[in-house]
């Protein structure tokens, strides 16, 4: 493997980079294709005359990086063994949350919201705790005024 790099370093390096970029590009294309309506609305479920369509919010983020390097400067001849490398990395996250259910029947179409009670209760407890703390601080006498009056 090492000998291959020494024999034809200039031919192998662009090929490696191109392969890496191609992988990144294809992964990025797949990631961008997630921005489709099909990602938000699920497969319709038939139940008698009624059709149920689940819907969700999808948030996805992705990032890549690629780099290469060698111990020889470009255009510089060296008798030493040429060491070089190409590396890359990436990360991503996809988050999905149900939003509502669409119910279509011969009587009409209605939308039932999906409530995330755990999230709402936790947020409410945090908010009311914060508000109670703030109000308690507000009701305390101001130290500056006490010092001045003394």
């Amino acid at each position: 493997m090492k000998e291959e790099i020494i024999i034809a370093p200039n031919e192998k390096e662009p090929a490696k980079k191109a392969a890496g970029l191609e992988t990144i590009q294809s992964t990025l294309d797949k990631f961008l294709s997630a921005a489709d309506v099909g990602a938000v609305y699920g497969q319709p479920i038939q139940h008698g005359d009624t059709i149920i369509i689940p819907s969700a919010e999808v948030v996805s983020g992705m990032g890549f990086g690629l780099g290469s390097g060698s111990n020889v400067e470009p255009g510089q001849e060296s008798n030493e063994t040429r060491n070089e490398g190409v590396g890359g990395g990436g990360g991503g996250h996809v988050f999905s949350r149900p939003v509502a259910v669409i119910i279509a029947s011969p009587e009409g179409v209605r939308i039932e919201p999906v409530l995330d009670l755990t999230k709402i209760i936790l947020a409410a407890l945090t908010t009311f705790g914060f508000m109670a703390g703030m109000l308690a601080r507000m009701s305390k006498p101001n130290k500056d005024h006490i010092e001045l009056s003394e």
Binding site: L28, F31, L32, E57, V59, S60, G61, G63, G90
Partner: peptide, 16 residues
Amino acid sequence: GLQGGVIWNRPVAVLV
């Protein structure tokens, strides 16, 4: 210039 991004996809309405 950067390889990456964010996508936020959400349902807004249904046309009947």
